[in-house]
Write a protein that binds this DNA or RNA. Sequence first.
DNA 1: TGAATGATGCGCT
DNA 2: GCGCATCATTCAT
Length: 206
Amino acid sequence: MPESHHRTLPRSFYDRPTLDVAADLIGKQIVFNRSDGRLAARIVEVEAYVGQDDPACHAARGQTKRNAVMFGRPGHAYIYFIYGMHHCLNFVTEREGFPAAVLVRAAEPSEGENLMRGSAIDKFRPELLRGPGKFCRAFDLTREQNGVDLCGGCLFVAESPLSTVRVGRSTRIGIRTGVDLLWRFYDEESPAVSGPNRILRAKELQ
DNA sequence: TGAATGATGCGCT
DNA sequence: GCGCATCATTCAT
């Protein structure tokens, strides 16, 4: 894949309203340069968590040791451990002091699939990176990467080659508060999307 | 020091 | 649709 596809997006991309960042992330490449090779995937589903007025945001009840990264500068990775077995990757957005982030929920493998945990080389599996926990597991992202800079390090987001994307919106998944907000964004054409849209498409195809 | 809980995924029904 | 694995974090004693 050409070098241009791996040009790191600047911090100014993240230093904007979180809903704008979330929508713009659909179709972009997430790249992780590891010592054993490069992993890349096309982001197809994200959710926005915006500030202390968003009841579903981890920062809703103030700053703690866990969510401190969200209060810092934009363009950093916020990775937390949940349900005793899963990690979730977020991109910190907006100005320093305003806690907000975008959760990466699903992606399509585009490079280094053979290095992704749980992958099979011989067949395309849209479920490999479907779901925030599965994505982190496949990329082997853990709290070791919590707080890393997305602008200049080995983990970053880059433009995709052809990025005409139909972006759909829906309510967020797996939360009990803030359920009415349409803060989930996804690629309407992607088979790798999780949740309601995947179910809807399955019905359409019948 | 302890109990509740969760931005999930999987298998079973 | 439901139960559950499994544990860091948080908040209440």
